[in-house]
Amino acid sequence: MKYTWTSEADCDILEISGNLDSNSAPAVSQCLDEYCAGTPRNLIIDLAQVDYISSAGLRVVIKVNHTQTATGKKVMLCGLKEYVREVFDMAGLSRILDIRDDRQAALA
């Protein structure tokens, strides 16, 4: 699992690749905690390269969404693969989180 940061005009993008399970989630979580502790802007999390996500990964997303929303910043998810998307559906999170098809849709 690895992740990379990029910045656009009015937002930051975190691109994650690999599996997002109990093993890898803490690293991403810590990275996002640090980001939120700094000067966060609107955030796009690109999951196009994530093949697998478990509830540990969902928790990371829920947590950053919670923190950002509290300060009036947005969190968008994009590029979810079919089965990853189904996990969000099963957990009932699709209605709560802002999920876009791909990065272009998120930046629009």
Binding site: S54, S55, A56, L58, R59, I62, K63, N65, H66, V87, M90, A91, G92, L93, I96
Partner: peptide, 23 residues
């Protein structure tokens, strides 16, 4: 209850099990 998850950020305990029973 899935509706509770977004607000109760600290209480994720049942999320995984909930996925299991759903599957």
């Amino acid at each position: 209850d899935p509706e509770q998850r977004s607000t109760e950020a600290a209480n994720f305990g049942g999320l995984g099990i909930s996925l299991v029973t759903t599957i």
